[in-house]
């Protein structure tokens, strides 16, 4: 299996606080990897570092997109990271609330489009065709994610679970090879979580993307992931297959008090 993301020695200091301490992580093609750990362990910070929102204090990050050269993504701006094929969702939903569901996904297509100011004003054939294509492509994505019924609704009027799925749809629209999901099941009920489980597997299979997710729902994590990385206090304390992680004494200790026999 080809490795598509390598993170080496990633360290992030905020003032005196060490939020991430020399983390190594790698993801292969078509793999679903979970990043777990107690609250405040540094999981979201890890996402923010990879996606260019925070510049990491130290460490290296490389991507090897399918069919492309291996390259470093350290120091890239968030939009450049996305252009390179990493897309993410947010823990606290960050949709464009006053735009429609369709428009939200269309924004995701932005970086794969090319028309500029001149095109917008002249509305030449290339621009019109591009716009039409984007509307259709966006709709197709919504269909896949199961949101086509909401296509013309405003994002703010969507039920909670649908908003989470719309974030995934929007991220998918950027044509990523690696999808980073930050607590996609947070606030979902049992049925919604189960649907999400299936959706993630389906995305992996049909789109051929790898997935890195942060999640607290252990049942989901165990059933979904090929491999799991565990962080605590900014340090990686374990990695391995779900069944290995479940038995790992260090992990159990870190989670002591939390329900862990899922």
């Amino acid at each position: 299996m080809k490795t598509i993301l390598e993170v080496k020695n990633l360290t992030m200091n905020f003032g005196g606080l060490c939020a991430l301490d020399r983390i190594d992580l790698d993801i292969s093609e078509r793999e679903i990897v979970a990043l777990i750990g107690p609250n405040g362990a540094g999981k979201t910070t890890f996402f923010n570092c990879i996606t260019g929102i925070f510049p990491p204090t130290e460490g290296e990050m490389f991507i090897s997109p399918p069919g492309k050269q291996r390259k470093s993504i350290k120091g890239l701006k968030p939009n450049q990271v996305t252009e390179n094929g990493l897309a993410r969702t947010f823990q606290n939903i960050r949709l464009f609330q006053n735009m429609t569901v369709l428009e939200n996904v269309m924004i995701g297509r932005h970086c794969r489009m090319s028309s500029g100011i001149a095109g917008a004003v002249l509305r030449n054939r290339a621009t019109v065709e591009e716009e039409e294509a984007v509307v259709e492509e966006s709709y197709i994505i919504l269909q896949k994610i199961g949101l086509s019924e909401y296509v013309n609704e405003f994002a703010k009027n969507l039920p909670y679970g649908a908003q989470r799925r719309l974030e995934i749809a929007r991220a998918l629209a950027t044509e990523p090879f690696l999808l980073l999901l930050d607590e996609p099941a947070a606030g979902m009920n049992l049925r919604e979580t189960k649907e999400l489980d299936e959706l993630i597997v389906r995305i992996r299979d049909s789109e051929g993307v790898s997935i890195l997710l942060i999640e607290h729902d252990m049942k989901l994590v165990m059933s979904l992931s090929d491999r799991i990385f565990v962080v605590d206090y900014g340090k990686k304390i374990a990695q391995g297959k779900p069944e290995e992680i479940q038995k790992n004494p260090v992990v159990i200790k870190a989670y002591l008090g939390e329900d862990f026999d899922a």
Partner: peptide
């Protein structure tokens, strides 16, 4: 609407 989400979408 949201600068951070916008950047994360490649804008």
């Amino acid at each position: 609407e949201d600068e951070i989400a916008c950047q994360a979408m490649g804008i």
